[in-house]
């Protein structure tokens, strides 16, 4: 606490009240321990070798984004020389992901998230993954000599 704040002044009262709120939040709405553990774990699963394909399109981004429950979330990721387009739809409690790798090729796509799985694409780079649980999702694939990983998104 800085010494030039007059004790009992309005600034001091605000500081004290904010500190009470901070204590109340620690007591009544703390960060769940299980979440902290997941965040610590993330370090082991980070990508160090792959190019990061940035999110270049998201149907939920921007002011015009409107989506009903039945509509698809459309995502586009782009990296140096390769990209990935995705359409995500709800199928019951889980999700169906339909994607295409560009340039089109037979590749293996690895789904990172709560239920990691690998799928092969067809000759046009297309693939479908069913029963993807909602949550953080990222994709990793090898196109030629390059490996790229997409940014994480919440689906």
């Amino acid at each position: 606490m800085s010494g030039d704040v007059e004790p009992g002044g309005p600034e001091r009262e605000d500081t004290d009240l904010e500190e009470s709120l901070r204590r109340a939040a620690q007591l009544f709405d703390p960060v769940p321990v299980s979440l902290m553990e997941v965040a610590v774990e993330a370090f082991r699963f980070r990508t160090v070798d792959a190019e990061l394909a940035e999110l270049t399109f998201d149907s939920l981004a921007g002011a015009a984004a409107v989506r009903g429950p039945a509509q698809a979330r459309v995502l586009g990721f782009g990296g140096p020389g390769a990209g990935l387009d995705l359409e995500i739809t709800a199928a019951g409690a889980s999700l169906r992901v339909v994607g295409q790798v560009t340039p089109p090729a037979h590749v293996v796509v690895e789904v990172r998230g709560d239920a990691p799985v690998s799928v092969g694409t067809d000759a046009f780079g297309r693939f479908t993954v069913d029963r993807v649980p909602p949550g953080p999702l990222s994709f990793r694939c090898r196109v030629g000599d390059a490996v790229f990983t997409t940014e994480w998104v919440t689906v």
Binding site: V31, P32, L35, V38, A39, A42, F43, F45, R46, T47, V48, L52, P134, G135, P136, S138, T149, E151, W152, V153, T154
Partner: peptide, 20 residues
């Protein structure tokens, strides 16, 4: 459920962006 997912996504992103 959404709050938990966003929290995780945020940290996963930081982990993948550590060197960037």
């Amino acid at each position: 459920a959404d709050a938990h997912e966003v929290f995780q996504t945020t940290w996963f992103r930081l982990a993948d962006n550590l060197t960037r």
